[in-house]
């Protein structure tokens, strides 16, 4: 495909994808809210909303990929995409920041305070007599009953290795792309996708194990809350990242991307590395320390 660069900044015309996305969000939000309130058929409304969203995402990205392959994106458009992706990832960092903040707050402040430290002597004496909190804990009332905390060794360590390896295979694929070795690109990407899904599967197994064998649930006090919130949202991000990598793999298999024009690949690679780094933070603060 010819890649004659266009001089002018490409401003797309009239698109129906955004409004489809908005309707999708509206239907999803109404559906899930009613469902949570106990509505009986709203579950289906929720799934219908998700389906609309999926339709929008597929259609919108197909549009973008076609435009890209048709050569409408010059360097300046690429610059906008780059800034867009960078700041999107920054917003994701801040999203995780809120939950990491909650974890640090619980460990540094609320648990010690409930145990009577700082200016909370009476909190412990009058309200939570005898509570001596130490991490991990389900709080002074042991909400959710006794549980077994997650060990850092074992599965989580394997998961760390898997994610780190996937980061490396992705870098290998990237270098291969820069050097024009297409087979290596496909192999590296395929390995990354496989490792990504393997991680998700192991994580799912870990959850089942935690719920059935360790009595570690979302309701296991502040430990269960932070554990599932952080690892859960991370898992969602890995899943999304792996799906995006799959799309990129499909594109490289169809011969998309050139040595000097492959922003789609780069964007997903950035995202994957971000997910990787978040995991390291999780491994350190949630599993290990």
């Amino acid at each position: 495909m010819a890649h004659a660069q266009h001089d002018k900044y490409y401003v797309p015309h009239d698109s129906h994808w955004p409004i489809v996305g908005s309707v999708g969000l509206l239907v999803t939000a109404l559906g899930v809210s009613n469902w949570l309130n106990g509505g009986s058929i709203s579950k289906f409304v929720f799934f219908a909303g998700l389906a609309i969203m999926a339709y929008m995402i597929i259609g919108w990205f197909r549009n973008v990929i076609q435009e890209s392959e048709a050569g409408y994106y010059n360097e300046k458009v690429g610059g906008s995409f780059r800034w867009g992706m960078i700041w999107f990832i920054f917003s994701e960092v801040m999203f995780f920041g809120a939950f990491f903040g909650a974890l640090f707050y619980a460990r540094q402040y609320s648990i010690p305070w409930l145990s009577g430290e700082g200016n909370n002597f009476f909190t412990n004496i009058l309200l939570w007599t005898g509570f001596e909190g130490s991490w991990p804990t389900a709080g002074p009332a042991e909400i959710g009953g006794e549980f077994e905390p997650m060990e850092a060794l074992g599965l989580p360590m394997w998961n760390t290795l898997i994610l780190l390896t996937s980061g490396m295979t992705l870098t290998v694929a990237h270098h291969a792309l820069l050097e024009g070795r297409r087979t290596m690109v496909n192999l590296g990407l395929a390995a990354t996708v496989a490792l990504g899904f393997l991680f998700v599967c192991l994580q799912a197994y870990e959850y089942v194990h935690a719920y059935t064998e360790m009595n570690l649930t979302m309701g296991s006090g502040i430990y269960g809350s932070t554990f599932y919130m952080l690892t859960g949202f991370h898992g969602v991000h890995v899943t999304v990242g792996a799906i995006m990598l799959t799309v990129i793999l499909g594109r490289t298999l169809s011969g998309h991307f050139t040595t000097d024009n492959h922003f789609g690949f780069e964007a997903v690679a950035w995202y994957w590395h971000f997910v990787d780094v978040v995991w390291l933070g999780l491994y350190l603060f949630v599993y290990w320390l």
């Binding site: 999203f95 995780f96 809120a98 909650a102 707050y105 619980a106 409930l114 959710g144």
Partner: peptide
């Protein structure tokens, strides 16, 4: 900061519907 707000209200949501205790002292939250 908008993602931080999203995080805050998400914790409200799970506290209400999914049994987490981010904001309940009995479970070690605040």
């Amino acid at each position: 900061v908008m993602p931080v707000l999203a995080g805050a209200v998400t914790m409200l949501l799970t506290d209400r519907f999914f049994g987490t205790t981010f904001f309940t002292a009995a479970g070690g939250g605040d």
